[in-house]
Every structure is written in C-alpha cells, then in structure tokens.
C-alpha cells in the first residue's frame, strides 16, 4: 500500500473485497486502481479535471468525466456498495446535495475532509487574525477551492439533522496516526476526519 496516501490506506481497510465502488472526485485514480488490484472491486471514478481523467485512463480505471455539483444522475439508487469522496466535500458548490446523492446511490458512503476546527486553525484566526494556511489548506483565501470548510462538530451536527447514521469514524493526523489527544478532543486535535455514513 506504500504508494497510497495514508488516508486512502485507512479507507481501503473499510472496503470489503469484491465490492462495487464509486469514487467521487477520484483524482488520478490511485485509490480505485489499488482497490481493483488488491480488493477485486469494480466500479467507476468520477472526476472533472482533464489531467486526472487521463491518469485514470492510464491506470485502467473506469472514469466518468463529470461535475459532481451537477448531481449523480448517471447512477441508479443503491447501485454501489460504497460511494467514496475523499477531500472533495469542502470544494463542492452544494455539499449537502452531493451527500444526499451519495446516500441515494450507495449502500455505504465514505467521506473525508480536513477538520477546520483544528487548534492550529483556531490560533491562526484568533491571534493572527487571518485565514488559516496550513499543510491541509495550503491555498490563500482568494484562490482556494475549499469554499465549504467544516469542523468535526459541524459535520456530525449535519448528519444528525439529516438523519444520516455514522457507522464508522476515524479522526487522525495528516500521517493518519491517531493519538490520545485526538481521541479526547477530536474537534480540537483532529487534522483529518474520516466517516462512513448511511441513510
């Protein structure tokens, strides 16, 4: 698994072999390629960026070029075992719509995002008085794609409000190591949040 982003390794552990997987905002297709080879999964990636789409083709990953904000109309209800969306939630125009679409087409959905509640971000904003720039959020406010950032608390409140069930949660750092502080205060010390949810 060495070539995968640590966060993707974590997701691989959650996927049952032979599953049907839809990866939204799949980037270069690394996760799907790994799952195909090691977990014998089938399915598709959805991506809009032309260079990423080309990488997916080179990796022999089924790729559908589409805009996630336009909805998942190409897919039937409950047609996938897992719908995955890593690090894309915060860049969507309508994250709420996409999440409900995920729950519609997938039996399980897996979402990851950078936790904006992290103490460093809070310090940055409180003391420097400026929008946080960090390893997870490297862009400046004016050119960031991350237009819908949320905290662990925000996300869980959202799930509760929409009657979405959280079946798995993992709060980790950028290297995806959990530690005691994160267990105690996930919203303050968690850098990346991973959730498995269903309707």
């Amino acid at each position: 698994m060495s070539e995968l982003r640590p966060e993707l390794e974590k997701i691989c552990e959650w996927i049952d072999p032979g599953s049907r997987v839809l990866d939204l905002g799949c980037g270069d297709g690394a996760l799907l390629a790994w799952l195909q080879d090691n977990r014998q999964t089938t399915g598709y990636g959805v991506e809009i960026n032309a260079d990423d789409v080309l990488s997916c083709l080179r990796k022999n990953v089924n790729i559908i070029q589409a805009d996630l904000d336009a909805g998942l109309t190409d897919f039937d209800d409950d047609s996938f075992d897992y719908v995955i969306m890593t690090q894309a939630l915060q860049a969507l125009q309508y994250p709420n719509r996409t999440l409900s679409e995920m729950l519609r087409v997938g039996k399980q959905s897996i979402v990851t995002f950078p936790n904006f509640g992290l103490w460093k971000h809070r310090v940055h904003l409180s003391f420097k008085g400026r929008m946080p720039v960090s390893k997870a959020l490297p862009a400046q406010w004016y050119d960031t794609q991350n237009i819908h950032l949320c905290t662990v608390k925000d996300f869980e409140w959202f799930c509760e409000e929409r009657a979405m069930t959280i079946s798995k949660r993992d709060i980790v750092d950028y290297e995806h190591r959990p530690n005691a502080l994160m267990k105690l205060w996930p919203n303050l010390f968690g850098e990346v949040a991973l959730y498995q949810i269903n309707g």
Binding site: R20, T42, Y44, V53, C56, L57, N62, I63, I64, Q65, A66, D74, F75, D76, S79
Partner: peptide, 10 residues
C-alpha cells in the same frame, strides 16, 4: 453503468 458494464466517458 446500470448494466454494470465497464465504461469510461470523456
């Protein structure tokens, strides 16, 4: 995709 066929679309 409904028929679970392999497809790439650009």
């Amino acid at each position: 995709t409904d028929a679970k066929c392999d497809v790439s679309y650009l």
